[in-house]
Nucleic acid binder design. Structure first.
Lengths: 220, 220
DNA sequence: CCGAAAGTGTACGATCTAGTCCGTTAGTCG
DNA sequence: CGACTAACGGACTAGATCGTACACTTTCGG
């Protein structure tokens, strides 16, 4: 049994900076994701944590900096997921399907991330711009797609000449819309896009859509 | 010269209820779209109109009701655009392209609408639910797509069996993402999706994507 | 074991913001 | 013309909200 660390873990757990910082980020992510930047309440974040509002200012400086840190952590999540992706052994079609499904699954599992992205776009990305550190040019995902496309084109499977980022955009748009716009879409058309009973259907639809597009012969 | 109506139009233009109401909605749409529901300031809306804040409460009752009216008007806009669409003379493939391009062009021309939709989704569609009147089941757009799909399938052009709402979702996701997520996408990948130089490219890509998907033969 | 620094809690304040009170003016109808 | 009502304006308020002052506790190196 892990009895040696009972004191530190269960007894009081005081003065654990790392843990406090992390708890603030967790709670803040929920609050910002649920209510947007302006709608989020610092006092409400404080009320939902074990420590007090004072700590938010101690660790992060203010509401805006906290929000930026939340955003950063959210993006780190999907980057980590993408980094784990390994498609080297797969044929190009399967590789693209795998990539699409990874994005689909990540967004499905992380609606808070999608909401944060929406929120940041409402603010025209000003916080990302201010923080600077988001740029990911020559990103791994872009190059991964580019390599798959090259292989597919070389093998004659992908007849359409397509830019890697455009493929990423195509996949993202589908996955993001389904999660981000489920409420208005549901209110208007009476269909919940994110209903679990429809998950497999849309997962397959996404893959098919991308593969069909890449495979089709461009006319004209 | 239009001298006869100088008095009414230019001189003072006082006591024009319809005009005042409409001006409030215009300004409010901008403010909500720019800052979100919580971020929008009633005082700021007031400052940008010819009349005063008192009139917002006189005509709409409060911030929330004003927001709902703004949303309603925004949705009425795209419904009107869809209603004008006439594809009866076109072959199924051209009809689908036309529909996709209409959606693309509307979203391109009305980013405020897209932003309002994003904002409403951040709030989980609660305002739409509260207002009730948004539901559009058996919507014209759905039936329009269904008819095109039937024709296309009858003619053997669309080999994939697809649901009409799913096609609408596919089109919307692409058009919405391009406008709604341009800031975060731009910040990360250094490409402005809504840049006018890329408009035709994405417009064509959307059409191709949809047609390719509908035309492809489903495997397995 | 002591002093400094890191970490924490409480109470409070300055400012902002949605919404209202009350008075005024323009149009209109008998 | 007179009075009634719809339309309007500006000042004000109650409460919310971000942020801070200050006192206190724990930790840890020397």
């Amino acid at each position: 049994m892990p009895g040696t660390r009972v004191d530190a873990d269960a007894h009081k757990r005081q003065r654990d900076a790392q843990r406090t910082r992390s708890e603030i980020l967790d709670v803040a992510a929920r609050e910002f994701s649920n209510h947007g930047y302006a709608g989020a309440r610092v006092d409400e974040i404080a009320a939902q944590m074990q420590t007090t509002k004072r700590m938010i200012y101690y660790y992060f400086g203010g509401k805006e900096q906290l929000y930026v840190e939340v955003l950063k952590r959210a993006y780190a999540g999907i980057r980590a997921a993408e980094a784990e992706l390994d498609v080297d052994g797969l044929d190009p079609v399967s590789a693209i399907r795998r990539l699409a499904e990874l994005t689909f699954d990540h967004h499905e599992a992380n609606p808070d991330f999608i909401r944060l992205v929406s929120i940041e776009n409402i603010h025209r990305g000003e916080h990302m711009a201010k923080a600077g550190i988001f740029a990911d040019l020559n990103s791994p995902i872009r190059e991964l797609i580019a390599r798959i496309l090259e292989r597919g084109q070389a093998e004659g499977l992908f007849r359409r000449r397509v830019d890697a980022l455009d493929v990423h955009m195509m996949i993202s748009s589908f996955c993001v819309f389904r999660v981000a716009n489920r409420y208005t879409f549901g209110a208007i058309f009476g269909r919940d896009l994110a209903d679990s009973g429809r998950r497999e259907h849309y997962r397959a639809m996404l893959s098919d859509m991308v593969v069909d597009y890449l495979s089709a012969a461009p006319v004209r």
